[in-house]
Design a binder for these strands. Structure first.
Lengths: 154, 154
DNA sequence: CAGGGTAATGAGTTATGCTAAGGAACATGC
DNA sequence: GCATGTTCCTTAGCATAACTCATTACCCTG
């Protein structure tokens, strides 16, 4: 049962090509996120916890509120996540220098080591995926990765 | 089988770049999926239900098992999702012509109309996002969309 | 110093997936 | 043709991870 498949090669903001791209993007992102959930490198860390550690690695330290906004999670959820990470010795909580309401979350050396390890393990997953993609497809993925990041926190 | 697999021992050109890309991709996909969850067009439909409807729209009709595989969900979950969609009058269940164990799920006219409406609403979201992306970034996104879809069901 | 606004958190609920187990329909051996 | 094993959908029970609402502590302005 064939349906209207708009031309993806043609461009211009707001037209059918973009709508179709967004459609495909949404579907792919949802299914991929489900896969990633299952494909987690470390059983003891949820995807969001991993994501938070990644954000901390990129941005240095941040307050729980900042992290919640970046990860698109409600503050109470971030409180929980940070508490779990702290219990595992992966982040450190310090009082905010200027505002005693806030706290500053930063990663520990242990988190650093863990990220390195996880990076190594991800290469295996990467390699298995590489079998299904040609170099051109990889190039497109690499090109789009920063755009997706921008989209994620836009 | 190992055509494009990066050389892990040497750390060649595709290695670190690919690892970084996968890193960024994972993080972006997780956060984006969370955003999409909130951006849902119809409050009564979960993201997965939407994704299933999208799949049905692309592929015509399918059995619950096929849908479960496509969406990377276990069969019992798909049973429930399909049941919910049926209760909402968005899909129709018919007996399989050849195999009476299976069923055939197809979308109703109402789902058709709903998808059209949702497509229209997504354009608003799209327009708001378009302000933050230039044409070059959109082009990269369009190019990567099919690759992401491939990745999602690889 | 009173009052509004913001940060983090605690408690309870909801959503959404999973595993285990079962029943019906097919496929294949003899 | 029937017994056996397999496949498909489903039911039931459970786990996780998010959310909302309410609370407390703190900052800042008038």
């Amino acid at each position: 049962m064939l349906r209207n498949m708009p031309d993806l090669s043609r461009g211009g903001p707001g037209d059918d090509a973009d709508a179709a791209a967004v459609n495909a993007l949404r579907s792919a992102v949802i299914r991929l996120s489900r896969r990633l959930k299952h494909q987690r490198v470390d059983e003891s860390l949820s995807p969001t916890e991993m994501s938070v550690l990644g954000t901390l690695a990129r941005c240095g330290s941040a307050t729980p509120g900042e992290l919640a906004r970046k990860e698109h999670v409600q503050p109470p959820s971030m409180t929980r996540i940070v508490a779990l990470l702290e219990a595992k010795g992966l982040v450190r909580l310090e009082p905010h220098p200027d505002d005693r309401r806030q706290k500053v979350v930063s990663q520990t050396e242990r988190a650093e080591a863990m990220l390195e390890e996880s990076r190594r393990r991800r290469n295996a997953w990467l390699a298995s995926l590489a079998e299904g993609l040609d170099e051109d497809e990889w190039a497109k993925l690499r090109a789009a990765a920063p755009v997706l990041e921008k989209l994620a926190h836009l």
